[in-house]
């Protein structure tokens, strides 16, 4: 499986990254080089191996339903790039 420039642009957008046209060629070839590393994965016989998502065989711990957090809105918003009275602001979104 090998990527072309168009696919690379699409993947970049999916990840909200922009690639200048001037770097596109190089990005595509770098990504294809990396993907060539993965090529032999398909040849490995994994039989009925269970996909392993976690290194440990544990189950999810459950938290008691209690309010433990205090209001730190001011501290949090002090480090935000752009805020209104008490909102985070982004350029107008058209729905």
């Amino acid at each position: 499986m090998s990527l072309d420039n168009k696919q690379v642009k699409e993947i970049a957008y999916l990840a909200r990254l922009s690639i200048e046209d001037t770097e596109l060629e190089q990005s595509t070839s770098e990504l294809n080089n990396i993907l060539s590393l993965m090529a032999d994965l398909s040849e490995i016989d994994t039989g009925d191996a269970e996909p392993m998502a976690h290194p440990l065989h544990m189950s999810q711990r459950l938290r008691e339903d209690e309010v433990t957090e205090e209001n730190l809105a001011e501290e949090f918003q002090a480090i935000a790039p752009k805020t209104g009275k008490s909102h985070f602001l982004v350029p107008t979104v058209i729905e």
Binding site: M1, S42, T46, E50, P51, M52
Partner: peptide, 13 residues
Amino acid sequence: DAYYLKAQKVRQL
């Protein structure tokens, strides 16, 4: 399936 899931299986191996 070809990448992520396959890698998870090899991880098991």
